[in-house]
């Protein structure tokens, strides 16, 4: 039973980690495309609005869809003057309460706040206001729903992990989860 739960929560984290690692390659695409855009503007005196808007898309997808991965890797910054000195159990308690009272409400709030805007954009087939810009603005806006969904997945997985740590289960040692 325990190991089945562990496996399920491990797979939840796996989704966020794989997503984060995939979108991390967008940084390379951003660097290359932006450089090509500059070269084009220097050499041919023309730059593409489509390319510069697509870079905005990649940038947004990168930092939003990797937010849960960053959480999984424990790289969201903390004010750790006290936290750093806490016992494993106390840290687990902080993370347990933080996930329940802060992370999950914030994620659900962002989904609630975004829903009507994303669906409006979808309904009217919104495109960029700039001539020759990106189509399908609702996908870009939709990242603001996917980001908190991934955070919820990671949050549930962290709830389980921190609960085990807090109650003293030994089978979860690695706070950073999936490697």
């Amino acid at each position: 039973m325990k190991s089945l739960l562990s496996k399920i929560f491990y797979q939840l984290s796996n989704i966020t980690v794989i997503t984060g690692q995939l979108v991390s390659w967008l940084t390379v695409a951003m660097v290359v495309l932006l450089t090509l855009n500059i070269l084009a503007s220097w050499l041919f005196k023309s730059s593409s609005i489509l390319v510069s808007e697509s870079i905005t898309w990649m940038h947004s997808a990168n930092f939003l869809l990797a937010a849960a991965y960053t959480l999984n890797r424990n790289e969201h910054v903390r004010v750790d003057i006290f936290y750093a000195k806490m016992s494993v159990r106390a840290k687990a308690l902080v993370d347990l309460l933080g996930t329940l009272l802060l992370l999950l409400p914030v994620s659900l709030f962002i989904i609630w706040a975004s829903w009507s805007y994303v669906s409006l954009s979808w309904r009217i087939g919104e495109v960029s206001a700039e001539a020759g810009g990106m189509p399908a603005t609702y996908i870009l806006k939709g990242f603001l729903i996917v980001m908190p969904l991934l955070l919820v997945l990671e949050g549930i997985s962290q709830l389980y992990r921190n609960f085990c740590l807090f109650t003293g289960e030994n089978n979860i040692q690695d706070k950073t989860g999936v490697q």
Binding site: Y117, I124, E130
Partner: peptide
């Protein structure tokens, strides 16, 4: 979008900003 969703009641701007929608 903001006035449309009703989160605020009123807005002031220029219509050509909404050309991507309309």
């Amino acid at each position: 979008d903001e006035v449309s969703s009703g989160s605020v009641q009123m807005g002031h701007g220029a219509a050509y900003y909404w050309k991507g929608k309309l």
